[in-house]
Nucleic acid binder design. Structure first.
Lengths: 144, 144
DNA sequence: TTGAATGCAAAATATTTGCATCTTC
DNA sequence: GAAGATGCAAATATTTTGCATTCAA
């Protein structure tokens, strides 16, 4: 999602009504590197819209995903996380602090490369790929 | 898990008491290519142990995973699935019928290869990798 | 003004916890 | 016999559904 466009415009371009809640949810996702869960977004968006319901968060996120605005995924926690960066990219998860980071930019083509390799050698017609790497982040290794 | 050993022996080798429920759960996992969920295992094991509780399934599966007997994972459904094949290997998931298959044997080293590639180029110390590929299985493509 | 979005409440799904009883070693 | 496993019940966590009210276009 381009940082230069305003969110009203982006929503309309995707055939969605521009409500203040939706704009803020999208803004938070686009401005976050944390791959937030519904619960986390609910808490943050509720600060500005105290009457907000979790229902709105879930409905909005589902809709955004259906229109291709965001991606929903699961790193193995049985919690959905959401990402405004829909460009295929792999994730690294810290087994200690549970943070979820994007993979190093040097490996930005990894997901596509691996997907293409599998596509030719599988009984399936492959449409997408999700790659997750588990380990220890720098902070946790240094005991921070 | 070797097919030749009996499950009593395998459990004891892993420091676990051999109860009939555990033996059957392990046998079912080892004999299945379906990557079953807790719920599915519960239904199947309950056929032979009608008093079985879901609690036992979950406790047993957790324990098995802690001892390295099985692997727990999540293909993006918010349901845990379990696999007695602990050898690192990628999975392909049918977006239509939701079946979860192991990747083609020709690509058996894919997970390790990709993991090693990432290990050198990441701020993380990488310990493991999970690769998921989504698409349409042969049956669904042929409209079966 | 009208169809769609929101909020509130309840339900559904999956998993975890507490505890008494029973079983394995 | 003692530590550990099982079963039953209740609790927790996350997501989904139903419906009346409000809002965007």
């Amino acid at each position: 999602v381009s940082q230069l466009k305003n969110y009203t415009q982006i929503l309309r371009e995707h055939g969605l009504r521009a409500t203040p809640q939706r704009e803020l949810i999208l803004e938070m996702l686009a401005g976050s590197r944390e791959h937030p869960s519904a619960d986390y977004l609910f808490a943050r968006v509720k600060e500005r819209f105290p009457a907000l319901s979790l229902n709105t968060i879930y409905k909005t996120l589902d809709l955004f995903e259906q229109r291709g605005l965001i991606k929903r995924f699961n790193v193995g926690e049985n919690i959905y996380r959401y990402d405004a960066d829909i460009h295929p990219h792999a994730h690294v998860i810290c087994l200690n602090c549970k943070r979820v980071d994007d993979i190093n930019a040097k490996l930005s083509d990894l997901t596509e490369r691996v997907k293409n390799e599998v596509a030719g050698h599988s009984g399936y017609r492959i449409i997408s790929a999700d790659l997750y790497f588990y380990g220890l982040c720098e902070d946790c290794r240094k005991g921070r």
